[in-house]
């Protein structure tokens, strides 16, 4: 596992949302950092995934990591989201992922 994220503008957007929703410093969101170690409760992760789904207008499927939690590291979380975005882009090229998302009123 690498200690730096590859250059992909979507990763920056994902990490910005995670930092905002979990109130964890953006600089601490490194690929090898564990969500437990960062003190991110599952509820905050759920809010972050909702915000990311809304931002990219995709459904991020539920997965279980090999240790039972949905995601163990920030890197695993980002990889899963990128794979979801790639699949969505391939499946429906007429609807690019930067289509304005519909946000429900809060």
């Amino acid at each position: 596992m690498s200690a730096v994220f590859p250059a992909d503008p979507r990763i920056g957007e994902i990490l910005d949302i995670v930092a905002q929703e979990t109130e964890v410093a953006r600089a601490a969101l490194l690929p090898d950092a564990t969500l437990d170690g960062l003190g991110i409760p599952s509820l905050d992760l759920t809010h972050a995934l909702f915000a990311i789904e809304t931002h990219f207008d995709v459904e991020i499927p539920v997965v279980a990591d090999q240790q039972g939690a949905e995601f163990i590291t920030v890197g695993a979380l980002v990889a899963h989201i990128l794979a979801t975005l790639d699949r969505a882009a391939a499946a429906s090229p007429a609807f690019p992922p930067d289509l304005p998302a519909q946000t429900p009123p809060t």
Binding site: H47, F50, D57, P104, P105
Partner: peptide, 18 residues
Amino acid sequence: DASYHALYADHARRLPPM
């Protein structure tokens, strides 16, 4: 109310997790 409005009126694809 907000969730049903989002779902039926705004055709939101997802509702707030809480």
